[in-house]
Design a protein around this nucleic acid. Structure first.
Lengths: 165, 165
DNA sequence: TTATACTGATACTAAATTAGTATCATTTAT
DNA sequence: ATAAATGATACTAATTTAGTATCAGTATAA
């Protein structure tokens, strides 16, 4: 039972990076490398965030993406909805044929209730909150190396795409 | 964001049918027709329920599947876990590389919390409860035709598989 | 004025999951 | 014997998720 897809996961991590650089434009390449997210995949994700008004971008050298909205106004639920559709009954075998069958009707009722809970919970987690958590975590973390909160993606199979032609 | 797959959905509906015939063996064909579930697909689902001890079966003519456990002892969560894996972090991009990255770490923390809530909620819904709901629904439902709670699956594309060779 | 570092747009492929179908062997009631 | 059932398992199709590639255009700065 997968709750978050990579899309959403990467998007939130990217937003966290942007959140630690508020006002600045950060390039997809930089985020990709810092977070170990496949470059081209990330690019599409960032474009999607742009289209949804969470970020804005600047083209050309020294360009990149910048957080547009206030971190406290960005809810994890919003991001989930961009990439995975509504939490509440998006995939609905139900709405189309509402209670065509009473057995699915009673089940549906319970599922809707739980989906509402999940929606509410994800609606309460803002980027601002995550950034605070991150700061705390970084503060506690026995102050060693790493000037960022990176600690890359344990030597996985993923190439960060080193296309510096 | 799909919460239940067809597998799970069909399984629960099948269990509801069995629950309304406690002690009796009901054939896959019968359930398939009553609920509009593709026959072969349902067969595999029932075998899975058997293997997990929720039901038992009898072969041959007049055979079928029978509820083995008490409806109050069957939780929707159990069924979900059979077909979709654990609610809590089954798909874990996390457990394998726990907090390799602090950004995913803060996110993960929140997701785990929500998954626990979901798990708890689904753990509280038993087949017994659904059966009660169903009975009420049937009682309220302006007593017309339909001697069962069927009202088949609105003329869909699915064939119930009329393989009566 | 040209090389470089970027984004925009979009098409494509690959992998994984979900959904559904088919077949054959065996069992059991009649 | 035959029909109605399950057991086991292999197969296909559809959908979703993940990832790659390419080309056009823009801004900076040497």
């Amino acid at each position: 039972m997968k709750v978050l897809t990579k899309n959403t996961d990467y998007a939130i991590r990217a937003l966290l990076v942007l959140g630690t650089h508020e006002g600045e434009y950060v390039s997809a390449r930089q985020i990709s490398q810092q977070q170990g997210i496949p470059y081209q995949f990330l690019r599409r994700i960032l474009q999607e965030l742009n289209k949804n008004g969470l970020t804005t971008s600047r083209e050309g050298a020294h360009g990149g993406v910048r957080l547009e909205k206030n971190p406290d106004a960005i809810r994890v639920r919003d991001v989930i909805e961009i990439f995975q559709g509504k939490v509440e009954l998006s995939e609905c075998m139900f709405r189309k044929q509402i209670c065509a069958n009473r057995a699915s009707c009673v089940l549906r009722h319970e599922i809707m209730r739980i989906e509402e809970i999940v929606s509410r919970e994800f609606g309460q987690i803002t980027l601002g909150k995550l950034l605070t958590d991150l700061t705390k975590l970084n503060a506690t973390a026995t102050m060693e190396h790493t000037d960022e909160f990176e600690i890359i993606n344990s030597g996985s199979h993923e190439k960060t795409d080193s296309n510096h032609r």
